[in-house]
Amino acid sequence: MANLDKQLPLFQLAPAGDTKAIEHVRQAIAGGKHWYIALLEAIGLWSSAEEANNGRVHCYLIDGEAFDWLELAERLCETVDGSLPDNEKMALLFHGEPPLDLTTEEFKQLIGSNKYRQYLNYFYGITVEEALILAVQEEIRKEKRTSGYDNEHDIDNEVYQRTYGDTKTALLNSFRRENDYPQRRSIILTELKEFTYWRFKYRLNHCDKARIASDTKKGLEQLKRQGTNHNFPRKLVTDK
Protein backbone atom coordinates (compact mmCIF):
# COMPACT_ATOMS: atom_id res chain seq x y z
CA MET A 1 0.00 0.00 0.00
CA ALA A 2 1.31 3.44 -0.89
CA ASN A 3 2.29 5.97 1.75
CA LEU A 4 -0.32 8.68 2.12
CA ASP A 5 2.07 11.53 2.80
CA LYS A 6 0.70 15.01 2.23
CA GLN A 7 3.89 16.62 3.51
CA LEU A 8 6.17 15.69 0.62
CA PRO A 9 7.68 18.91 -0.82
CA LEU A 10 6.55 17.94 -4.28
CA PHE A 11 4.00 20.39 -5.65
CA GLN A 12 3.39 24.07 -5.13
CA LEU A 13 0.44 25.94 -6.55
CA ALA A 14 1.55 27.84 -9.64
CA PRO A 15 -1.36 28.96 -11.85
CA ALA A 16 0.96 29.88 -14.71
CA GLY A 17 2.22 26.31 -14.98
CA ASP A 18 5.82 25.20 -15.18
CA THR A 19 7.76 26.84 -17.98
CA LYS A 20 10.87 24.77 -17.37
CA ALA A 21 9.04 21.48 -17.92
CA ILE A 22 7.33 22.76 -21.06
CA GLU A 23 10.61 24.01 -22.52
CA HIS A 24 12.25 20.68 -21.75
CA VAL A 25 9.70 18.52 -23.53
CA ARG A 26 9.81 20.78 -26.59
CA GLN A 27 13.60 20.93 -26.78
CA ALA A 28 14.13 17.24 -26.02
CA ILE A 29 11.76 16.13 -28.79
CA ALA A 30 13.26 18.63 -31.22
CA GLY A 31 16.68 17.21 -30.33
CA GLY A 32 15.63 13.70 -31.30
CA LYS A 33 14.73 12.16 -27.94
CA HIS A 34 11.77 9.79 -27.94
CA TRP A 35 8.68 11.82 -27.07
CA TYR A 36 7.57 9.50 -24.27
CA ILE A 37 10.93 9.74 -22.49
CA ALA A 38 10.90 13.52 -22.93
CA LEU A 39 7.37 13.62 -21.55
CA LEU A 40 8.26 11.65 -18.42
CA GLU A 41 11.32 13.81 -17.83
CA ALA A 42 9.14 16.91 -18.10
CA ILE A 43 6.70 15.40 -15.62
CA GLY A 44 9.65 15.00 -13.26
CA LEU A 45 10.36 18.73 -13.59
CA TRP A 46 6.77 19.88 -13.14
CA SER A 47 6.02 21.78 -9.92
CA SER A 48 2.36 22.86 -10.05
CA ALA A 49 -0.38 21.01 -8.19
CA GLU A 50 -3.03 22.65 -10.34
CA GLU A 51 -3.37 25.35 -12.95
CA ALA A 52 -5.83 27.11 -15.22
CA ASN A 53 -4.87 26.81 -18.88
CA ASN A 54 -6.90 27.78 -21.95
CA GLY A 55 -10.09 28.06 -19.94
CA ARG A 56 -9.66 24.68 -18.26
CA VAL A 57 -8.64 23.94 -14.68
CA HIS A 58 -6.22 21.03 -14.35
CA CYS A 59 -5.85 19.30 -10.99
CA TYR A 60 -2.74 17.12 -10.93
CA LEU A 61 -2.63 16.28 -7.23
CA ILE A 62 -5.80 14.89 -5.68
CA ASP A 63 -6.20 15.78 -2.00
CA GLY A 64 -2.55 16.84 -1.89
CA GLU A 65 -1.53 13.17 -2.11
CA ALA A 66 -2.52 11.33 -5.29
CA PHE A 67 -0.71 12.29 -8.50
CA ASP A 68 -2.91 12.15 -11.62
CA TRP A 69 -0.03 11.75 -14.03
CA LEU A 70 -2.14 11.22 -17.16
CA GLU A 71 -3.83 14.58 -16.55
CA LEU A 72 -0.40 16.21 -16.58
CA ALA A 73 0.69 14.09 -19.56
CA GLU A 74 -2.28 15.39 -21.53
CA ARG A 75 -1.41 18.98 -20.59
CA LEU A 76 2.20 18.57 -21.70
CA CYS A 77 1.22 16.80 -24.92
CA GLU A 78 -0.81 19.89 -25.84
CA THR A 79 2.40 21.95 -25.83
CA VAL A 80 3.99 19.74 -28.51
CA ASP A 81 0.85 18.90 -30.47
CA GLY A 82 1.80 18.09 -34.04
CA SER A 83 5.18 16.67 -33.00
CA LEU A 84 3.77 13.41 -31.63
CA PRO A 85 2.43 10.35 -33.47
CA ASP A 86 -1.34 10.69 -33.04
CA ASN A 87 -1.92 6.96 -32.59
CA GLU A 88 0.69 6.68 -29.83
CA LYS A 89 -0.54 9.80 -28.07
CA MET A 90 -4.17 8.67 -28.14
CA ALA A 91 -3.22 5.17 -26.94
CA LEU A 92 -1.43 6.67 -23.95
CA LEU A 93 -3.98 9.31 -22.96
CA PHE A 94 -7.17 7.31 -23.56
CA HIS A 95 -6.08 3.72 -22.95
CA GLY A 96 -3.02 4.06 -20.74
CA GLU A 97 -0.89 2.22 -23.30
CA PRO A 98 2.66 3.65 -23.49
CA PRO A 99 4.69 3.54 -26.71
CA LEU A 100 7.71 2.14 -24.83
CA ASP A 101 7.76 -0.74 -22.37
CA LEU A 102 9.75 0.70 -19.45
CA THR A 103 10.57 -1.12 -16.25
CA THR A 104 9.13 0.14 -12.99
CA GLU A 105 12.56 1.42 -11.94
CA GLU A 106 13.07 3.28 -15.24
CA PHE A 107 9.67 4.92 -14.92
CA LYS A 108 10.40 5.87 -11.30
CA GLN A 109 13.75 7.42 -12.19
CA LEU A 110 12.26 9.49 -15.00
CA ILE A 111 9.43 11.07 -12.99
CA GLY A 112 11.27 11.12 -9.64
CA SER A 113 10.80 9.08 -6.47
CA ASN A 114 8.48 11.59 -4.74
CA LYS A 115 6.11 11.81 -7.67
CA TYR A 116 6.27 8.05 -8.02
CA ARG A 117 5.08 7.56 -4.43
CA GLN A 118 2.18 9.91 -5.01
CA TYR A 119 1.50 8.19 -8.31
CA LEU A 120 1.08 4.96 -6.34
CA ASN A 121 -1.41 6.76 -4.11
CA TYR A 122 -3.45 7.52 -7.22
CA PHE A 123 -3.18 3.95 -8.45
CA TYR A 124 -4.39 2.34 -5.23
CA GLY A 125 -6.63 5.18 -4.10
CA ILE A 126 -8.46 5.89 -7.35
CA THR A 127 -7.73 3.35 -10.10
CA VAL A 128 -7.97 0.27 -7.87
CA GLU A 129 -10.84 1.78 -5.85
CA GLU A 130 -12.88 2.29 -9.02
CA ALA A 131 -12.09 -1.28 -10.09
CA LEU A 132 -13.20 -2.56 -6.68
CA ILE A 133 -16.61 -0.94 -7.13
CA LEU A 134 -16.97 -2.62 -10.54
CA ALA A 135 -15.97 -5.97 -9.06
CA VAL A 136 -18.53 -5.74 -6.25
CA GLN A 137 -21.14 -4.61 -8.75
CA GLU A 138 -20.47 -7.73 -10.83
CA GLU A 139 -20.72 -9.91 -7.71
CA ILE A 140 -24.12 -8.50 -6.80
CA ARG A 141 -25.44 -8.84 -10.35
CA LYS A 142 -24.27 -12.46 -10.46
CA GLU A 143 -25.98 -13.16 -7.14
CA LYS A 144 -29.21 -11.62 -8.41
CA ARG A 145 -29.12 -13.66 -11.62
CA THR A 146 -28.44 -16.85 -9.67
CA SER A 147 -31.43 -16.18 -7.43
CA GLY A 148 -33.62 -15.33 -10.43
CA TYR A 149 -33.92 -11.69 -9.37
CA ASP A 150 -32.71 -9.40 -12.16
CA ASN A 151 -34.02 -6.09 -10.84
CA GLU A 152 -31.04 -3.72 -10.64
CA HIS A 153 -32.94 -0.92 -8.97
CA ASP A 154 -30.73 0.85 -6.43
CA ILE A 155 -27.79 -1.47 -7.15
CA ASP A 156 -25.35 1.40 -6.53
CA ASN A 157 -26.42 1.64 -2.91
CA GLU A 158 -26.10 -2.14 -2.52
CA VAL A 159 -22.55 -1.93 -3.85
CA TYR A 160 -21.64 0.92 -1.52
CA GLN A 161 -23.30 -0.71 1.48
CA ARG A 162 -21.31 -3.88 0.92
CA THR A 163 -18.03 -2.05 0.31
CA TYR A 164 -18.23 0.84 2.78
CA GLY A 165 -21.14 0.03 5.08
CA ASP A 166 -23.20 3.04 3.98
CA THR A 167 -25.10 4.33 0.95
CA LYS A 168 -23.49 6.28 -1.86
CA THR A 169 -25.66 9.30 -1.08
CA ALA A 170 -24.71 9.31 2.60
CA LEU A 171 -21.01 8.96 1.80
CA LEU A 172 -21.10 11.71 -0.82
CA ASN A 173 -22.88 14.03 1.60
CA SER A 174 -20.25 13.33 4.28
CA PHE A 175 -17.42 13.91 1.81
CA ARG A 176 -18.89 17.24 0.74
CA ARG A 177 -19.50 18.39 4.29
CA GLU A 178 -15.90 17.60 5.25
CA ASN A 179 -14.59 19.57 2.27
CA ASP A 180 -17.15 22.39 2.47
CA TYR A 181 -18.43 21.56 -1.02
CA PRO A 182 -22.00 22.41 -2.06
CA GLN A 183 -24.58 19.62 -1.89
CA ARG A 184 -25.71 19.43 -5.51
CA ARG A 185 -27.14 16.78 -7.80
CA SER A 186 -24.28 16.71 -10.30
CA ILE A 187 -20.58 16.03 -9.76
CA ILE A 188 -17.66 17.20 -11.89
CA LEU A 189 -14.76 14.91 -12.81
CA THR A 190 -12.23 16.40 -10.39
CA GLU A 191 -14.67 16.15 -7.49
CA LEU A 192 -15.47 12.57 -8.49
CA LYS A 193 -11.77 11.68 -8.29
CA GLU A 194 -11.54 13.37 -4.90
CA PHE A 195 -14.61 11.45 -3.72
CA THR A 196 -13.11 8.16 -4.90
CA TYR A 197 -9.88 8.87 -3.05
CA TRP A 198 -11.85 9.90 0.05
CA ARG A 199 -13.70 6.57 -0.06
CA PHE A 200 -10.39 4.73 -0.29
CA LYS A 201 -9.17 6.41 2.90
CA TYR A 202 -12.57 5.83 4.50
CA ARG A 203 -12.11 2.09 3.93
CA LEU A 204 -8.62 2.21 5.44
CA ASN A 205 -10.04 3.83 8.56
CA HIS A 206 -13.13 1.64 8.94
CA CYS A 207 -12.08 -1.86 7.82
CA ASP A 208 -9.71 -4.39 9.35
CA LYS A 209 -6.42 -5.21 7.64
CA ALA A 210 -7.60 -8.55 6.28
CA ARG A 211 -10.62 -6.92 4.63
CA ILE A 212 -8.47 -4.12 3.18
CA ALA A 213 -6.04 -6.65 1.68
CA SER A 214 -8.91 -8.73 0.29
CA ASP A 215 -10.58 -5.71 -1.32
CA THR A 216 -7.28 -4.51 -2.80
CA LYS A 217 -6.74 -7.93 -4.35
CA LYS A 218 -10.29 -7.88 -5.70
CA GLY A 219 -9.71 -4.49 -7.35
CA LEU A 220 -6.40 -5.60 -8.87
CA GLU A 221 -7.98 -8.76 -10.25
CA GLN A 222 -10.73 -6.66 -11.80
CA LEU A 223 -8.10 -4.54 -13.56
CA LYS A 224 -6.48 -7.69 -14.93
CA ARG A 225 -9.82 -8.94 -16.26
CA GLN A 226 -10.35 -5.59 -17.96
CA GLY A 227 -6.87 -5.70 -19.45
CA THR A 228 -6.35 -2.24 -17.97
CA ASN A 229 -3.14 -0.81 -16.56
CA HIS A 230 -3.28 2.95 -17.29
CA ASN A 231 0.50 2.63 -17.67
CA PHE A 232 0.93 1.70 -14.05
CA PRO A 233 3.82 -0.78 -13.80
CA ARG A 234 2.48 -4.15 -14.84
CA LYS A 235 3.73 -5.95 -11.77
CA LEU A 236 1.42 -3.82 -9.61
CA VAL A 237 -1.44 -5.61 -11.31
CA THR A 238 0.14 -9.01 -11.87
CA ASP A 239 2.18 -9.58 -8.70
CA LYS A 240 -0.29 -8.49 -6.02
Rank of each mutant, 00 (worst) to 15 (best):
residue 184 R to N: 11
residue 4 L to A: 14
residue 198 W to R: 07
residue 123 F to T: 01
residue 90 M to K: 08
residue 17 G to Q: 11
residue 165 G to D: 15
residue 86 D to C: 03
residue 232 F to Q: 00
residue 221 E to S: 08
residue 202 Y to G: 06
residue 175 F to D: 06
residue 193 K to H: 04
residue 29 I to C: 03
residue 12 Q to C: 02
residue 77 C to E: 08
residue 236 L to Y: 01
residue 21 A to L: 14
residue 140 I to H: 08
residue 50 E to K: 10
residue 9 P to E: 14
residue 5 D to H: 12
residue 104 T to Y: 00
residue 101 D to R: 01
residue 19 T to V: 06
residue 49 A to F: 05
residue 218 K to P: 11
residue 154 D to V: 13
residue 201 K to Y: 04
residue 125 G to P: 14
residue 63 D to K: 03
residue 50 E to C: 03
residue 224 K to D: 08
residue 164 Y to P: 07
residue 232 F to L: 01
residue 87 N to M: 13
residue 132 L to A: 08
residue 116 Y to T: 00
residue 139 E to C: 10
residue 86 D to P: 02
residue 17 G to T: 09
residue 9 P to Q: 05
residue 151 N to K: 10
residue 61 L to M: 12
residue 38 A to F: 03
residue 43 I to W: 00
residue 202 Y to D: 05
residue 152 E to V: 15
residue 159 V to L: 13
residue 193 K to E: 11
residue 141 R to M: 10
residue 22 I to W: 06
residue 85 P to E: 03
residue 109 Q to Y: 00
residue 110 L to E: 01
residue 43 I to Q: 00
residue 100 L to D: 03
residue 237 V to E: 04
residue 176 R to Q: 08
residue 112 G to S: 03
residue 231 N to Y: 01
residue 217 K to G: 14
residue 3 N to P: 14
residue 151 N to I: 04
residue 133 I to K: 05
residue 3 N to S: 15
residue 111 I to M: 09
residue 172 L to V: 04
residue 96 G to P: 02
residue 64 G to E: 06
residue 154 D to S: 12
residue 111 I to G: 02
residue 160 Y to E: 02
residue 3 N to E: 14
residue 6 K to D: 06
residue 58 H to G: 07
residue 120 L to K: 00
residue 182 P to T: 09
residue 142 K to T: 15
residue 161 Q to Y: 04
residue 72 L to E: 09
residue 72 L to H: 08
residue 138 E to C: 08
residue 62 I to L: 11
residue 175 F to L: 04
residue 112 G to E: 00
residue 137 Q to A: 07
residue 163 T to V: 10
residue 95 H to K: 13
residue 196 T to K: 11
residue 137 Q to F: 06
residue 98 P to C: 05
residue 20 K to N: 06
residue 13 L to S: 13
residue 207 C to L: 10
residue 70 L to Q: 07
residue 44 G to P: 07
